[in-house]
């Protein structure tokens, strides 16, 4: 039996697949890019949801995922699908290494370390020592996979559908993580760290594991980006990318996966709209909107919608509504 939400989801996916045949060229690329950003921002939802801290460096994982796929496909002739797990696992390992020192401390150290990562990674990719592998400043041109089995699709359509399929799978994966028992336990850890620590739970390890999973999401997003853009270079992964993903998280709403999708659409389309006003407007617009949302609508667009749907119950000074509900639930369980 498929319930109402399940039916809605199927309809949604069908509509997105249909988009692959309604749009073409640059518009289709934009949709694919939105799906990629959505997967990347899901990673951020996982970190912020489980650790209560934020990452300013997920652009670095995006870069590592993209380079992993580009290098394996171009230098080693791997098929695209085989590079996905490698990209994901490489990023998870990197996430674990970067997250552990920061997450065993309380405070905003994660934001600090990830910020440093975001600034340092483009320089590393440009470094002479790695030039053989990374192509240095020039980057790597990636040959996108051809349409298999003689399917009647254009290359753009095929890439869009592949991206969409991976994004839907990752969404389902994230959904299971966020609804699962472990995640609820993690939320309990986040909210009652002392009690958990007293019970002998290694909070740092669990938080770091969550961070590694979040890096995995963003790494896979990077791998997808490598084939839809068909080019990777250090300049594509400047710190601004990390910040754009973070803005997407806040605008969409850190409390839900739907927020990740909304945030991704924002990251892809908002700069284009703002640029029509003024070439320099995107930065000011991004910044002002970020500050405004944090003041007026801390749950982001998704949180705002949820409130609206919940009968205009405007509860002030509460974290995003999904988190609030689950916090309530876990507080009783303690």
């Amino acid at each position: 039996m498929i319930g109402m939400p399940g039916l809605m989801r199927l309809l949604g996916i069908a509509a997105l697949v249909a988009c692959g045949f309604l749009f073409s060229g640059y518009h289709l690329f934009q949709l694919a890019q939105t799906a990629v950003y959505a997967v990347a921002i899901m990673g951020l939802v996982v970190v912020t949801g489980t650790t209560g801290q934020v990452s300013l460096g997920h652009g670095a994982f995006y870069a590592v995922g993209a380079y992993a796929t580009a290098i394996l496909m171009t230098n080693f002739g791997w098929p695209f699908w085989a590079t996905l797990p490698v990209a994901g696992i490489a990023c998870a390992a990197l996430g674990f290494a970067v997250g552990l020192p920061a997450l065993r401390l309380s405070g905003s150290y994660l934001a600090l370390v990830t910020f440093a990562l975001a600034v340092a990674v483009p320089q590393m990719l440009r470094a002479k020592a790695l030039e053989q592998l990374t192509g240095g400043v020039q980057g790597i041109v990636v040959t996108a996979p051809d349409v298999p089995f003689g399917l009647p699709l254009s290359q753009d359509q095929y890439l869009y559908l592949v991206t969409l399929a991976v994004a839907v799978l990752m969404f389902a994966f994230a959904h299971n993580i966020l609804r699962g028992r472990t995640w609820r336990a993690m939320v309990a850890l986040r909210d009652q760290p002392l009690a958990a620590e007293a019970a002998g739970i290694d909070i740092a390890r669990i938080k770091t594991r969550a961070f590694a999973i979040s890096a995995l999401f963003t790494g896979i997003a990077g791998a997808l980006a490598a084939i839809i853009v068909q080019f990777v270079a250090p300049d594509s992964f400047q710190p601004q990318l990390s910040i754009a993903l973070f803005v997407g998280l806040v605008v969409g709403g850190a409390g839900s996966l739907a927020g990740a999708v909304i945030g991704a659409a924002f990251v892809e389309f908002a700069p284009l709209l703002a640029e029509q006003v003024n070439k320099n407007a995107p930065g000011v617009f991004y910044g002002a909107l970020l500050v405004a949302i944090l003041f007026v609508m801390p749950g982001g667009v998704a949180g705002g919608f949820r409130r609206l749907i919940a009968g205009f119950q405007w509860r002030r000074h509460k974290p995003p509504s999904m988190l609030a509900k689950q916090q309530g639930g876990t507080a009783h369980a303690e």
Partner: peptide, 18 residues
């Protein structure tokens, strides 16, 4: 929370940079 304080700082960063 981390999201609020870091978010406002990043917002200011973007505004001043632009």
């Amino acid at each position: 929370s981390g999201l609020g304080t870091v978010g406002v700082a990043i917002g200011l960063l973007l505004i001043f940079n632009a």
